[in-house]
């Protein structure tokens, strides 16, 4: 089976499956209807959070289903942005998350290349090990990681957190990237090698540019994982309030019994914006980048 359909195949393919003109109007309406309903289900809970964040402070819980509540107010946003340390926390998260996503991508991109292009002793066990790390229940690792970090003096610093985030997402990233590299024909590099280019620069100039979709996906995954992590952040930096990430801060709006729902919703919406933007921006790569190492000719 060929991965890249020829021009003739594509036209047949498009005629058959992609063209909506062949569908009867009734069928088209049904399809749109199904998609509209699904889309509403997909975003409705988010809209509800928006709605709660707009409610005046004394009416956070109500049985009204109106998405824009009567006498909507931006008060919660004002408090979160100007009276709490929230902006500092978000800034910390941005700094930490960007750094880890970049480091994570670099670590995974190079390792995945080794896995994809060489056979070496330890390769298969290595891949199985990477896969099995996905099966470790996260709560299990927290206590030993904390102990290790405090022995190395890495608690209450960004250093420990950045290192931990960059490394923990590496196995899955390697998996995705290796799968993608595998679909890039070796002949391209071999031609370059014959021209006297070194292996590393062949990787840099040929393989990496061709892997943009997968690299974007891996960056996105790393970013998402670090951005919304609670367990590790709690273990590593919970005792230094100025270092907090937004997750710790937002958790703080929910003390033992009481939840400050207004602040919680407003800050949730605010931190969702960058991730959703990043996600939607890269969604054009999502479909081509996530090959999971299996779509091979």
């Amino acid at each position: 089976m060929s991965n890249v359909p020829s021009a003739k195949q594509r036209s047949a393919w498009e005629r058959f499956f992609k063209s909506g003109r062949q569908d009867s109007p009734f069928k088209r309406i049904l399809i749109h209807l199904a998609l509209i309903i699904s889309s509403i289900i997909a975003i409705y809970p988010v809209l509800r959070v928006v709605s709660v964040s707009l409610r005046p402070g004394d009416r956070l819980l109500s049985t009204s289903l109106a998405l824009i509540p009567p006498d909507a107010t931006l008060e919660a946003y004002r408090v979160v942005l100007f009276e709490k340390e929230f902006p500092v926390w978000v800034w910390n998260s941005i700094a930490i998350t960007s750094a880890t996503a970049v480091i994570g991508v670099v670590l995974a991109a190079t390792s995945a290349y080794a896995f994809s292009r060489w056979r070496f002793p330890g390769r298969s066990p290595g891949l199985v090990f990477l896969l099995s790390t996905q099966m470790l229940p996260a709560p299990m690792m927290m206590v030993p990681i904390y102990i290790l970090a405090s022995k190395l003096g890495l608690t209450q610093t960004y250093r420990g957190l950045v290192i931990a985030y960059s490394v923990t997402s590496v196995p899955f990233s390697i998996w995705i990237l290796k799968g993608y590299y595998d679909t890039i024909p070796r002949e391209l590099e071999e031609a370059a090698l014959i021209d006297g280019v070194s292996r590393l620069s062949a990787f840099w100039r040929i393989v990496l540019p061709l892997s943009t979709p997968a690299l974007a996906i891996v960056f996105l995954f790393n970013f998402m994982a670090a951005w919304s992590d609670y367990l590790l952040a709690r273990v590593m930096i919970a005792s230094e309030r100025p270092l907090w990430t937004w997750v710790l801060g937002v958790r703080d709006f929910q003390s033992q019994f009481q939840t400050q729902w207004g602040l919680f919703s407003a800050s949730s919406i605010l931190v969702m914006v960058p991730v959703v933007a990043l996600f939607l921006y890269s969604s054009k790569w999502l479909i081509s980048g996530l090959t999971l190492g299996s779509v091979k000719g």
Partner: peptide
Amino acid sequence: TLLIFPWAIPQPI
């Protein structure tokens, strides 16, 4: 885009 939304939201939220 809309259908991908649930995936894009931080899980705790």
